[in-house]
């Protein structure tokens, strides 16, 4: 006998509640989208702050944003991209290798070193900023791109994720079969294990690239040359200047609003297009 299929569940009150929450989470985006269209009179004229003014001038504001101060904003975006890619890719390569090594080889000192990595999960990254700054200043590394890229390579959580994933998704039997067929250890890793680990690799890459892109405290401490700033530090500086002299900086405010909008676009696109990947990987850390 067939059982009746459960009716699709609608739950109208819950959906309405969810609707309110969505509005809450979207309000800041909406504000930025609306207000980045305004010119100075529209912004300060006392009109509705959650709706468009009479003049909608996205292109004009964009042009201003990218030409202000010899196009420093474009430079900040490029810097952020460089830091995110270099830090993200570097951290991922290290994490994949280490996670695989911890999962698949019983070497001397393995338990102790893995315990160290787990302990490092609990050392907040920001607690390392001032110590790292002082060490780097001994070597003259502060105020260079390396001051931002090198510390981003340290990603103990990535190692932990890769360890869990390699342990569960790469069976020892397959590796042994590859070895028996005469493949060396490196080739076994690259051609047999790596393809099996790919979903977690994408997740770690995304998470570490996002962490580098979002980083603020580290570059704020390390960099003094504004041509090396990532976009987070740059906008923070602009905001400080604009708030310090309220009246004289009306044009800077519209640059900041447009700048905030432009700076979130790359990540929002990345998250939407790659959502299949990060969602699978996020569950790895949560479930075990």
């Amino acid at each position: 006998m067939m059982r009746a299929r459960p009716r699709p569940q609608r739950h109208l009150p819950l959906q309405v509640l969810l609707g309110f929450l969505v509005v809450y989470f979207l309000v800041p985006f909406w504000w930025v989208i609306v207000n980045s269209s305004k010119d100075a009179p529209g912004l300060f004229g006392g009109g509705n702050t959650l709706w468009f003014a009479d003049t909608i001038d996205y292109l004009g504001n964009l042009q201003q944003l990218f030409t202000y101060d010899n196009g420093i904003y474009g430079r900040w975006i490029l810097n952020s991209t460089l830091y995110a890619l270099a830090g993200g890719i570097g951290a991922t390569v290290l994490a994949v290798m280490a996670g695989y090594g911890f999962a698949k080889y019983r070497f001397a000192g393995r338990r102790f070193s893995f315990a160290l990595v787990l302990g490092a999960l609990m050392v907040p990254a920001t607690a390392l900023v001032i110590p790292t700054f002082m060490m780097f200043s001994e070597f003259g590394l502060t105020n260079t791109i390396w001051a931002v890229i090198l510390p981003s390579l340290l990603n103990p959580f990535g190692v932990y994720l890769m360890h869990v994933y390699a342990r569960d998704a790469v069976p020892d039997e397959i590796l042994d079969a590859a070895r028996a067929d005469g493949a060396g250890e490196i080739r076994t890793f690259l051609q047999v294990a790596f393809p099996l680990m790919r979903p977690a690799v994408v997740t770690v890459l995304l998470l570490s690239a996002v962490a580098s892109w979002n980083n603020y405290f580290l570059p704020l401490a390390m960099l003094s040359d504004n041509r090396l700033f990532p976009v987070t530090v740059g906008l923070g500086v602009w905001q400080g200047i604009a708030s310090a002299n309220n009246a004289g900086s009306t044009s800077l405010w519209s640059l900041i609003i447009m700048g905030a909008l432009v700076s979130v676009v790359p990540l929002v696109i990345a998250f939407f297009t790659l959502q299949r990947h990060w969602r699978g990987g996020l569950s790895v850390g949560g479930l075990r």
Partner: peptide
């Protein structure tokens, strides 16, 4: 071989770990 290969895989991260976590602390 297990010892050597294990450390080869873990080593690069280990260096970063020592240089950018243990040393600054």
């Amino acid at each position: 071989r297990e010892h050597v290969m294990g450390w080869l895989f873990v080593g690069p991260f280990g260096i970063v770990f020592l240089a950018l976590l243990i040393a600054p602390l």
